[in-house]
Design a binder for these strands. Structure first.
Length: 516
RNA sequence: GCCGCGUUGGUCAAGGGGUUAAGACGCCUCCCUUUCACGGAGGAAUCACGGGUUCGAAUCCCGUACGUGGUACCA
């Protein structure tokens, strides 16, 4: 066992969105930077929201990102179980909750949901819109603090539905050190008596996180900023149950924000960028219930995992240098919790695409060739000559931001352009040019060898002979071969598609241009 | 309402008492290229506000504003 043990604890209730993946990533980078273990534990205590397949989905996302856990329900490990539902079976949560009751730090509460609702509406005022089950109100409720021991025992014996709540002490200040924010202080009077053990016997997050971290010997705990307000509950639980000296070090990560406020799952369809790492086939997480429109995940959108973790790592952390492109290994080597921001960061899709563009340029074509090939095949273009395919990708990679761009940028290498941008040709098209091309077809037919230099030479030779500037002819030629004003140098394209296709495309285009 | 956390260009951000306040994305101009990109050179644009402390504040302190989170038998 390593001395550093960092855990990521997702709940299998929804897709892995940007904030979630960044939390994993920071956990992982921190652990690996310190030579420690990265542990994934599943928090499946909320059965009502549990979604089948969600757990597998989480691991699929991690795998795509290149993150392999050292311990997890899928990978095994010595400190299992790695699912809370399984630890519940072992009775640990109940055991510790009972211990807290016995020691006077918690109590049984028999209030029904209706009674709780009544309390909240009865005590609701303008100054206090959401009354809490706290030291002000707990003596007005139905619990083992207000009931006699005999009645409590009777209710318990009768199997009355009940929960166990923490009894927040009065007048204490709980403080702890956050690795990112420094000392955080909270007054216990302002925190409510959180439920620790639910009526179904499942722990709430508050109990589970403490018990699990203790049992799994976790040394460092990263989580989102939204946990900060309940941190004093967890600190208190550590103090009562296992001792503060055994408590892991905390780091509360800043939020990732969307174009307006906190990034939500809806923002994907709203603003047209992915918010999830991957699509989730079992329950399409990006689907907008209203429009039934699916927002693709980063993977499906055509991001490279290298770019994805890179851009995510830089959203809230930087190395303190001007470097922005990092491999996973570099991130591990350079990651430092001291350089994580405390303020939230707004996600910028334009910058995200820039990262991917850089990675497409930076990586060797062969490392993503297969993904592009699959893309081509899904559009009905089968690739037979792998070597040629790789060459073509190399030719157009500078022009591609997302993987699907490869299709648009190189489809003309494989098939004749479906439409020609005639508007680009029309204004300057004339009979001289038409004559040039019919003449050039002859020259092409007589060409000994088919290579860039030869093609270009014959083109320029004939142009000079006809007294037309070669540049004026290159543009129409490009439209003929490509369909539009884009792509690598024309003669390179001509060479790649071959003599027959070149001549065919010129002939075809000449017909179309005839009506201009 | 109360409590927590935050605030350097439109965005990501460096800088943490003296700087012409880095760099990147995006935007604009120019060069390269008779295509589109890539590449190169420039440009516009910033310390939320108000008080202190100090010879001197983006930087330290206090307020205010704004943002965001929590205030569930959700995590």
């Amino acid at each position: 066992m390593s001395t550093i043990r960092v855990r990521f604890a997702p709940s299998p209730t929804g897709g892995l969105h940007l904030g979630g993946v960044r939390t994993v990533l920071y956990n992982y980078l921190f652990a690996k930077n310190k030579g420690g273990d990265f542990i994934v534990r599943i928090e499946d205590t909320d059965q009502s929201r549990f979604v089948p397949g969600a757990e597998q989905y989480i691991f699929d996302c991690l795998k795509w990102c290149g993150i392999e856990p050292d311990e997890s329900p899928l990978h095994g490990g010595a400190y299992g179980p790695y699912r809370q539902s399984e630890r519940k079976e072992q009775g640990f949560y109940k055991k510790y909750a009972d211990q807290l009751v016995m020691e006077g730090h918690a109590y049984y509460a028999f209030d029904t949901p209706e009674e709780l609702e009544k309390m909240r509406s009865d005590f609701k005022t303008a100054e206090n819109p959401s009354p809490q089950y706290d030291h002000h109100l707990r003596m007005k409720m139905k619990n083992s603090l207000t009931l006699t021991p005999a009645v409590t025992a009777q209710l318990l014996a009768a199997g009355t539905r009940h929960v166990i709540r923490i009894k927040m002490p009065q007048g204490e200040t709980v403080s702890f050190n956050d690795m990112i924010r420094g000392e955080i202080k909270n007054e216990t009077d302002l925190v409510d008596d959180k439920v620790l053990l639910k009526a179904d016997g499942m722990p709430t997050y508050h109990l589970a996180v403490v018990v699990d971290d203790y049992l799994m010997k976790i040394t460092h705990a990263f989580r989102g900023e939204e946990w900060l307000p309940s941190a004093p509950v967890h600190v208190l639980l550590w103090k009562y149950l296992f001792g503060l000296n055994k408590m892991p070090e905390w780091a509360h990560l800043p939020l990732i924000l969307g174009p307006s406020g906190k990034l939500s799952k809806r923002d994907g369809t709203k603003y047209g960028f992915p918010v999830f790492a991957m699509n989730w086939p079992q329950a399409p997480v990006g689907t907008d219930p209203k429009t039934n429109e699916l927002t693709e995940g980063f993977k499906e959108k055509g991001f490279l995992p290298e770019a994805f973790i890179n851009l995510l790592a830089l959203l809230g952390w930087n190395a303190g240098t001007e470097q922005e492109l990092f491999t996973k290994e570099e991130l591990i080597a350079l990651f430092s919790i001291d350089r994580v921001h405390s303020g939230g960061a707004k996600f910028d899709y334009e910058k995200a695409k820039w990262f991917n563009h850089e990675w497409i340029k930076k990586l060797k074509v062969e490392s993503y060739k297969l993904k592009v090939k699959v893309l081509f095949e899904s559009k009905g273009i089968s690739i037979s000559d792998d070597e040629k395919f790789e060459k073509i990708l190399e030719l157009v990679k500078d022009r591609c931001t997302l993987l699907p761009d490869f299709y648009d940028q190189s489809i003309f290498f494989f098939t004749d352009p479906s439409t020609l941008d005639t508007d680009a040709v029309k204004p300057k098209w004339n009979d001289d040019k038409k004559l040039f091309f019919t003449g050039w077809i002859n020259a092409l037919n007589n060409l000994q060898s088919w290579d860039v230099a030869g093609i270009e030479h014959s083109f320029k030779e004939l142009a000079t002979e006809k007294n037309i500037k070669p540049g004026e002819l290159q543009s129409p030629l490009r439209i003929m071969l490509v369909g539009g004003k884009y792509g690598p140098p024309v003669f390179v394209i001509a060479e790649a598609i071959g003599k027959i296709a070149t001549i065919n495309r010129i002939n075809k285009a000449l017909d179309i241009f005839a009506s201009l």
